[in-house]
């Protein structure tokens, strides 16, 4: 049962192996902090939607499952948007722009369809958590690499010296840099997995 949790982290990593959620991974990874925020928002919605969908899996008729999934997911996203804004205006200021993006993250619908609609509540919870963490690790790595090379900073603090921070590799925080980093991460994971075989 525990393997459902670990699978999402490396073996079936949603971004690098299942190729889901590539859009937010490329778009929201220009700084490490933004990436982390997006990751946390996805974990929250993914876990809740997996639990709900798994609990309702026997009640939902097969042909209309997709619209039902979408309603459930967007309900959770909207609830999260409102609650976050009401609870902490600072956190909302930092995370607020990512919340609406979660609804179009195909990892969530993908896991609802491929896993939660076929498994029990607890395993679906583990799957959601594992997949969410797997996504967060990758997007955070992307954000950190792109921020270090593209702005010479990490979490807004200058590293690699001030000379580099004044003229960093701007290319890395522009869209092409995102594709480059994700290609290296995918290649790296494949290389690592083949070597360990």
């Amino acid at each position: 049962m525990f393997k459902h949790f670990t699978e999402g982290i490396i073996k079936n990593n949603p971004v690098l192996v299942l190729m889901l959620g590539l859009c937010p991974t490329l778009a929201v990874s220009t700084t490490a902090l933004d990436a982390l925020g997006m990751g946390v928002a996805v974990i929250f919605v993914l876990v809740l939607s997996n639990i709900t969908i798994s609990a309702l899996r026997k009640v939902i008729p097969e042909p209309i499952r997709i619209p039902v999934f979408i309603i459930i997911i967007s309900t959770f996203v909207t609830i999260m948007d409102f609650t976050l804004h009401a609870l902490s205006s600072e956190l909302y200021g930092a995370l607020g722009i990512f919340v609406p993006l979660v609804v179009v993250n195909c990892i969530i619908l993908g896991r609802a369809e491929a896993f939660a609609s076929k498994h029990g509540i607890f395993t679906s919870f583990l799957d959601g958590l594992g997949m969410g963490i797997g996504f967060t690790i990758i997007i955070f790595l992307m954000g950190a690499i792109r921020e270090i090379l593209g702005s010479g900073k990490i979490f807004g603090n200058i590293i690699l010296g001030t000379t580099f921070a004044e003229s960093p590799v701007i290319y890395m925080i522009l869209p092409p840099g995102g594709f480059l980093v994700i290609a290296f991460l995918m290649g790296g994971l494949n290389w690592f997995q083949q070597r360990s075989k």
Binding site: V59, I64, I71
Partner: peptide
């Protein structure tokens, strides 16, 4: 189908 979608 209609009922369950409506209820959700």
């Amino acid at each position: 189908m209609i009922l369950s979608l409506t209820i959700v």
